[in-house]
Design a binder for these strands. Structure first.
Length: 650
RNA sequence: GCCAAUGUAGCUCAGUGGUAGAGCAACGCUCUCGUAAAGCGUAGGUCACCGGUUCAAAUCCGGUCAUUGGCUCCA
C-alpha cells in the first residue's frame, strides 16, 4: 500500500481505500450525492470530525446525518454557536460561558451583566438566528496558541473563557468563527450555518458557572433546532403530548392528590382516588413480598437524635432534614430514613445464622427538607413513603439475596409494561470517600457482576456512582413515551452493620457481622405514582383504576337494574359507581370517558329483560352486549391478571 | 437557596387606570332520553397576601407567600 492511501471501514464492514487527507464530504460524495447532501459530520472511530476536515488515518468511518445521534450533536453544537452569534449581535456587551449540545437541543450560558434578559426577548433572538443562518456563514476552524487565546479573551474581559482556557492543554486550543462570532471550541461543526432552518428557544434558566453555587449565576438559554420546519412542529407536538400526561394536571383532574398552602409546600394530601391507587400498589407489593419471605414491620415517625447520630445521618445530612425538636431535654428528629429503626429491630434479639436472611419491610414515611426550588408536584416532596426493606444476611447469602431482589424488581416493572435498564454502580477506586473494608467492596462488586451475568442481564457498569456505604444496582425504567426514570435501587451496605454493631452467631459459635441490602423497587410511592400517571396518561390498567366500572342507566326507569349490576360487581370487590343523574346517555358516556373510567356499562330496557349489559371500553367505544355473568367473569379475570389496558401501545 | 415566569369563580381562561367577565362544573326546575355535551334559571370573587402611588388599582411600584421551568442538592 502506498503511503498516500488510507483504508476506511464502513459501518456495514466494507473497506475502501482513499487518498490520504480526503475530507469526510468527499467520502460521502463517493457513496452518493444524496448522502453528501444530508451529511452533517463524520465519526472516525469514536471521534466526530467536521465534513471539511482531512482524514489522515485508517479507521472505522460513518457519515453522520440527521438520523444519527452524532449528526444531531454536531447540528446542535453549531446551533449553540448561532445562538451566541445572534445574542452578540443584539446585545454586544454580554460575556459568553459555555454552549454545548444536549440530549434535546442545546444551550448557551451567558452573562448579561447588569441587564436582565426576559422571556419576551427570546423571539427576537430566534428571528436573528434564522436571519444569520440564511447568510450561510462558514464555520472556520483556527488553531491558536494558549497565549493568543488568553490575550483574545482578556481583551474582551471574559473571565469565563479564560477560566476554561487555563484548564486546557497548550496545543489543543482551537477557535471557530462564523460570521462575526468567534468562539473557543473543540468542534466539530457543520460546514456552514445554512442547514439550520428552524429554531425554537425553549426556556430560560439561571445556571451557576461550572455548576458551583458559589460562582456567579449566568443566564442559560435553552433551544432546539431542526433542518426542517416540519420537524420542529412535530417536536412541539410531542411536548404538548407530554404536557397532557403531566401528573400535576392529571393528578388534579382525576382526584389523585392535592397540595394545600395551609398544610405546607411539598406535603401532598392523597385524595380518595389517589388513596385507592396507592393502596392497590401497596397491596400488590406487600403480597408479593409475603410470598418471598419478607416480614413487615411498623416504626414511628420520629426518633431520638441518637439513633441518627449512630447511623451517621445526623448531622451529615442536617441540611436536608427538618430541624430537630426538643422533647424532655432530648433532641428528636422527624425520620429521614427507615433503616436505623430496622437495624434496631434486627438487634432486638440474638440472631443465629439459622435465622438469616432476615428481611424486614415497611411502607415507611420519611420527611426530608428539600430545597424550595426543588419541589415538584408529587415527584419531589418533603414527606413521602418508601417501599423500604432491609435484608440482613451472611456474606455467603449475599449473591442469592441480590438475585432475589433483582427478580422481584423485574417482576414489579414488567407488571406495568415498563422496560428496565440495569446499572451496576461501583465505587471509583481513586476516591477515598467510601466506607467499609476494601475486601468487602471487592467481593461484593465481583458478586454483583457474577449475579448479573448468571441472570443473563443486559447491564452497564457505572464507576463512581456507588453510595458511601456500598455498591448499588440502579433500575432505570422507560415510560410509554420513551422518557427514562431512575426508580428502584438495591444497595449493599457494610457500614451500618458496624455502626449498629449488628451480629449473628455462626455455626462456629462466634459472633459475625451480617451484611445489609437496602432495596425499594418503587422508591417513593409519591414519585412512583407520578410516573405511573404519566406512563399510562391516566388510562390505568383495570386493576389500578380508582373507579373500574361505571353503570349508566338509559333513563331513571333502569336505575334499579343498574343498581343490581353494581351490587353484583361490588360482590366481586370491583370499584363501581352508578350514574343516576338525569342526563342523556350521550352525556353520561362523555363524562365517564373524560374521567378515564375503564368500563362503561349501559343498561336500558333490552338489557334488563335479557339480563345483559351493553359494554363500552375507555378509548375503544362500544364493544358489544354481554350476559351479565359473562361480564362479571371478564372483569374478574382482567383484574386478577393485571392486564395492561388494550390501548396501551409499547 | 439562586435565576426566570405565573397567581382573577371549584376547573380552564378573558379582562393595560374608571361598576369584575365567559365556558365548563355546582345548585333548582323542566325533560326520561339507546352509545362522546338536553333546555331554562340561580348562586358563586378580599382579582394570592401586605404595603405604596393615584380622585380612582385586578391593572402601575415595592415586599411576602405559593406554583411552574431550570441551576445546585438528593442518605
Amino acid at each position: 500500500m502506498s503511503e498516500e492511501q488510507i483504508t476506511l471501514t464502513f459501518p456495514d464492514g466494507a473497506q475502501k481505500q482513499f487518498p490520504k487527507h480526503i475530507t469526510g464530504l468527499e467520502v460521502a460524495e463517493s457513496i452518493s450525492k444524496g448522502l453528501a447532501r444530508n451529511a452533517l459530520s463524520i465519526s472516525l472511530d469514536n471521534e466526530i470530525l467536521g465534513l471539511n476536515e482531512p482524514i489522515s488515518r485508517n479507521g472505522k468511518i460513518s457519515i453522520n446525518t440527521w438520523n444519527t445521534d452524532d449528526g444531531q450533536y454536531t447540528f446542535w453544537h453549531s446551533s449553540a454557536h448561532l445562538l451566541a452569534e445572534a445574542v452578540q449581535e443584539l446585545y454586544p456587551d454580554v460575556k459568553f460561558g459555555i454552549g454545548p449540545p444536549i440530549e434535546n437541543g442545546f444551550y448557551y450560558d451567558i452573562d448579561f451583566g447588569e441587564k436582565s434578559f426576559g422571556q419576551d426577548q427570546l423571539e427576537k433572538v430566534e428571528k436573528k438566528m434564522i436571519e444569520l443562518a440564511r447568510k450561510k456563514s462558514e464555520f472556520k476552524k483556527r488553531k491558536v496558541s494558549k497565549q493568543e487565546a488568553l490575550e483574545h479573551y482578556s481583551k474582551l474581559g471574559n473571565e469565563y473563557k479564560i477560566d476554561l482556557i487555563e484548564g486546557l492543554e497548550d496545543d489543543s486550543i482551537t477557535f471557530y468563527k462564523q460570521g462575526n462570532f468567534t468562539d473557543l471550541c473543540r468542534g466539530p461543526h457543520l460546514p456552514d450555518t445554512s442547514p439550520i432552518k428552524a429554531v425554537k428557544l425553549t426556556k430560560l434558566a439561571g445556571a451557576y458557572w461550572r455548576g458551583d453555587v458559589k460562582s456567579k449565576q449566568l443566564t442559560r438559554i435553552y433551544g432546539i433546532s431542526f433542518p426542517k420546519q416540519k420537524m420542529l412542529n412535530e417536536y412541539l407536538e410531542q411536548i404538548e403530548e407530554a404536557k397532557k400526561r403531566d401528573h400535576k394536571k392529571l393528578g388534579k383532574e382525576m382526584g389523585i392528590y392535592m397540595m394545600d398552602p395551609m398544610v405546607g409546600p411539598g406535603l401532598p394530601l392523597w385524595l380518595p382516588n389517589g388513596t385507592v391507587l396507592r393502596r392497590t400498589l401497596e397491596h400488590f407489593l406487600r403480597e408479593e413480598q409475603k410470598h418471598r419471605g419478607y416480614q413487615e414491620v411498623i416504626t414511628p415517625h420520629i426518633a431520638n437524635l441518637n439513633l441518627y447520630r449512630t447511623s451517621g445521618h445526623y448531622p451529615y445530612y442536617k441540611d436536608s432534614q427538618f430541624n430537630p425538636m426538643e422533647v424532655d431535654d432530648e433532641g428528636y428528629l422527624l425520620k429521614p430514613m427507615n433503616c436505623p429503626h430496622h437495624h434496631r429491630i434486627y438487634s432486638n434479639e440474638l440472631r443465629s445464622y439459622r435465622d438469616l436472611p432476615v428481611r424486614l419491610a415497611e411502607f415507611g414515611t420519611v420527611y426530608r427538607y428539600e430545597q424550595s426550588g426543588e419541589l415538584n408536584g408529587m415527584s419531589r416532596v418533603r414527606g413521602f413513603t418508601q417501599d423500604d426493606a432491609h435484608i440482613y444476611c451472611t456474606n455467603d447469602q449475599l449473591k442469592d439475596e441480590i438475585k432475589h431482589v433483582i427478580e422481584l424488581t423485574q417482576f414489579v416493572f414488567n407488571t406495568f409494561g415498563m422496560p428496565v435498564d440495569i446499572h451496576l454502580s461501583f465505587r471509583d477506586d481513586k476516591d477515598e470517600k467510601y466506607g467499609g473494608k476494601n475486601e468487602n467492596w471487592q467481593r461484593s462488586q465481583r458478586e454483583l457482576n457474577e449475579v448479573a451475568d448468571e441472570m443473563g442481564l443486559d447491564y452497564k457498569i457505572v464507576e463512581g456512582e456507588a453510595s458511601f456505604y456500598g455498591p448499588k444496582i440502579d433500575f432505570i425504567i422507560r415510560d410509554a413515551i420513551g422518557r427514562q426514570w431512575q426508580l428502584g435501587t438495591v444497595q449493599v451496605d457494610y457500614v451500618m452493620p458496624e455502626r449498629f454493631d449488628l451480629t449473628y452467631v455462626g455455626s462456629d459459635n462466634n459472633r459475625h457481622r451480617p451484611v445489609i441490602i437496602h432495596r425499594a423497587p418503587f422508591g417513593s410511592m409519591e414519585r412512583f405514582v407520578s410516573i405511573l400517571i404519566e406512563h399510562f396518561a391516566g388510562d390505568f390498567p383495570l386493576w389500578l383504576a380508582p373507579v373500574q366500572v361505571k353503570v349508566l342507566p338509559i333513563s331513571d326507569d333502569y336505575i334499579g337494574y343498574a343498581q343490581k349490576c353494581a351490587d353484583k360487581l361490588k360482590g366481586l370487590d370491583v370499584r363501581v359507581e352508578v350514574d343516576t343523574r338525569s342526563e342523556m346517555i350521550g352525556g353520561k358516556i362523555r363524562d365517564a370517558e373524560n374521567s378515564k373510567i375503564p368500563y362503561m356499562v349501559i343498561v336500558g330496557e333490552k338489557e334488563e329483560s335479557d339480563s345483559t349489559v351493553s359494554l363500552r371500553r375507555h378509548k375503544q367505544g362500544d364493544i358489544g352486549t354481554f350476559k351479565l355473568e359473562e361480564f362479571l367473569n371478564k372483569v374478574k379475570n382482567e383484574i386478577e391478571s393485571r392486564s395492561l389496558p388494550p390501548t396501551y401501545d409499547q
